[in-house]
Amino acid sequence: MEMSDAQGCMLPCGRDVETVWARLDATDTGSADAHEDTCTYCSTTRKGLVVLRHVAGGLASEEAAPVSLGLVARIMSAVRAETRRHHMLTLPGPEPGGLRISEQAVAAVLRSAADSVDGVRARRCRIAATETVGEVEVEMSLAVAYRRFSADAVHEVRERVAAAAAARVGVTPARLDLTVEDLYDA
């Protein structure tokens, strides 16, 4: 494999292109060896490499290939459509077709319920609908103040999150997984 790689770049004079490339700066500054001084294969390759090195940077430049102005908008509208499609919960209620609420809005309510417990900060909060309308599964990670943390605090979080889900959103957590993933000093 490596042999064929090297042979693919061998010049008729017996030097390979990688050697010419590696010595580009040396030959530029006048420390070319005897072969390099006289060999036309090496010198032609050198010229090509110098131009290549000079032009390659242009491929990365904004001016040579500007991104179309609408691209960000197109990407973000696809992203937001995705958010709507995949992250809506149906709430129980008398309305035909049910009432829908974004999972993010629910997560914000549940995080603030957890935050209300002394020495607790909610971090990630993931909510998934279950088969039953009005039931959700919640995963929440917490950071806790290590000076004030007690096991009771996690029970307190559990109660307040469940209460907020029922009273402020109208859903019941069928499962509520709490993970303490970090400590903070306060």
Binding site: D16, V17, E18, T45, V51
Partner: peptide, 23 residues
């Protein structure tokens, strides 16, 4: 990584040849 180096070497050789007519 060896294959990557090989591919880059071959690419560079071919591109240099194409750019040689330019000064």
């Amino acid at each position: 990584q060896t294959a990557v180096r090989g591919r880059i070497a071959r690419a560079r050789a071919q591109l240099a040849e194409a750019m040689a007519p330019w000064r």
